[in-house]
């Protein structure tokens, strides 16, 4: 899997690269419009993380160039502006997703995986973790071939944890992903616990476990 990061802020770029490399992606990174344009012209990527506000040009223009060349690279726009206009223009121009800064690393992985999955899993669309198999299309969850019925939130939590498996996912990241942006001003994220509890019950027969990490967040452990 090849990923290109286009980001002019070096520390931001470094964070993203570190985190994505750990997931065994091949990561390339550029920090200017010109370099990005060159890379896009020469290579193909599974996913491009594109910052709009580049010092020497607008990221949306890169997106246009890409589409003009008929390339099908997945594109996630990463922007500090979180402007509705940019989001709409970006999606209109063919971007796959729009991720406003600041974001949680777990969220970045989820978005990248979703884009990569949509583009690459032509034949095998199933997601597997331990003895659990998930079909993202139909949202069916099977443990050892036996279907388990999860509600929307339980399913979203499970998918998010699988996407970020073996990584600590903070409660805030999980709450914002599953319950949406609007939940964010709640005075505590402890309310997610009841859904986690239900999910754990339903995963009793599975070889994966949702582990709490010191009340900070959760982690998916896969029995080996």
């Amino acid at each position: 899997m090849k990923i290109l990061i286009v980001e002019d802020e070096p520390q931001m770029l470094d964070n993203m690269r570190q985190s994505l490399v750990r997931e065994h992606y091949t990561v390339e990174a550029v920090s200017s419009f010109k370099d990005a344009n060159d890379k896009i012209g020469l290579y193909e990527y599974d996913c491009i993380l594109l910052d709009i506000g580049l010092p020497d040009g607008n990221g949306l223009e890169l997106l246009q160039n890409l589409k003009k060349q008929g390339k099908e690279d997945g594109v996630i726009i990463v922007s500090a502006k979180d402007s509705l206009d940019d989001r709409l223009t970006g999606l209109d121009l063919g971007a796959d997703d729009y991720l406003p800064k600041p974001f949680h690393m777990a969220e970045l992985h989820a978005r990248v995986k979703a884009v990569v999955r949509r583009r690459n899993f032509e034949g095998n669309k199933l997601v597997e973790a331990g003895n659990v198999t998930i079909d993202p299309e139909s949202r069916n969850v099977l443990i050892e071939g036996e279907e388990v019925i999860l509600n929307r939130k339980e399913y979203d939590i499970l998918m998010y944890l699988i996407t970020n498996k073996t990584r600590l996912v903070t409660k805030a990241a999980l709450a914002e992903h599953v319950w949406g942006d609007h939940i964010d001003q709640a005075d505590s994220f402890d309310f997610i616990y009841s859904q986690i509890k239900n999910l754990r019950k339903k995963l009793e027969k599975a070889t994966i476990q949702v582990e709490a990490v010191y009340g900070v967040g959760y982690k998916l452990e896969i029995d080996s």
Binding site: M16, A80, R167
Partner: peptide, 28 residues
């Protein structure tokens, strides 16, 4: 936004990459 994003992500990476004890994790 950008400095916030950098700080949050740096800390998240730190939490991921290091084996921390309970107190350290909670502080972070």
């Amino acid at each position: 936004q950008t400095p916030l994003a950098i700080s949050i992500n740096k800390l998240e990476l730190f939490l991921e990459n290091n084996t921390l004890n309970e107190k350290q994790s909670k502080d972070l």
